[in-house]
């Protein structure tokens, strides 16, 4: 039993060590987006521990920015639920691709679902679990690291948001860059280009038609409809791994 525990602790250490470098872009982004939240909530009269508590139990960028406005007398809970649901509706998508991978994560599953932010979700698809590390521990390590950056950032923002020694304007571009890198990586892989293009075009068209506040839901409906309707076209395109295998076979 002791040796089992020890070896599990050993692989956790390995999992965190392997996950850490992948989370650096999220570290840069979350520290500063989190700090912006910390500054805003502190201006509402909530001190550093409140800021960190909110980031611990809510853990959502746009969701927490929106929530700052809710701490006023006479707010309606129904309105809170509706607005938060609409702002985070894109998250409904994310689990669909992770049902299989999360199945073998045991007790960690609830936390992995809770912590499924845009950035964490993206890292799950950018990274490959290194050999010798159980996948559930690797996913868990990414989730915990990202979450801790977020809590740390909001605490720092609430504590010393006004004393920041250098101008960090624009550092949140790290998140945009992360998504662009994943998109480019997939494109260079030659995998799922049609699906990526469908996502880009649907979102762009819906952004133009529906405006910046309301385009995500129509974009999601549009993406689903196109993927389902064009299934034969999208399925005929090879996924990345298959393509690699095919290249190897041809080479062999």
């Amino acid at each position: 039993m002791q040796s089992v525990l020890n070896s599990e602790r050993g692989t956790y250490k390995k999992a965190f060590a392997a996950a850490f470098p992948h989370t650096l872009p999220v570290l840069a982004g979350y520290l500063f987006i989190g700090m912006a939240f910390g500054v805003m909530i502190q201006e509402k009269g909530y001190h550093v521990l409140w800021a960190m508590f909110m980031s611990l139990v809510i853990y959502a960028g746009s969701g927490q920015y929106l929530a700052v406005n809710f701490f006023v007398p006479g707010i309606s809970f129904l309105q809170i639920i509706f607005m938060e649901f609409m702002v985070n509706i894109r998250h409904i998508f994310y689990g669909l691709s992770l049902i299989g991978r999360f199945e073998k994560t045991g007790k960690k599953k609830a936390y992995l679902i809770f912590s499924l932010t845009d950035e964490t979700y993206s890292l799950y698809f950018l990274t490959k679990t290194p050999p010798g590390v159980p996948e559930d521990q690797f996913l868990f390590a990414i989730a915990v690291l990202d979450h801790s950056y977020w809590i740390l950032g909001s605490g720092l923002g609430a504590l010393l948001g006004h004393l920041i020694p250098f101008d960090a304007t624009g550092i949140d571009f790290a998140m945009t860059a992360l998504f662009l890198v994943i998109l480019t990586e997939q494109w260079m892989d030659g995998a799922n280009r049609r699906s990526a293009t469908a996502g880009l075009i649907c979102a762009l068209v819906c952004r133009i038609l529906f405006g910046e506040e309301q385009f995500i839901l129509p974009a999601m409906v549009c993406i689903m409809a196109i993927l389902v309707a064009g299934r034969r076209m999208f399925e005929s395109e090879k996924s990345g791994e298959k393509k690699e295998r095919e290249v190897e076979e041809h080479a062999g």
């Binding site: 049902i99 979700y121 993206s122 998504f179 997939q186 762009l204 993927l227």
Partner: peptide
């Protein structure tokens, strides 16, 4: 169909998130 969507959705979602960042 869900397994299929799970497979092809991530690239589409990343595309959507790029537009979301520029919204």
């Amino acid at each position: 169909v869900i397994r299929y969507l799970g497979r092809v959705l991530p690239p589409a979602v990343i595309g959507m998130l790029v537009i979301y960042c520029f919204k």
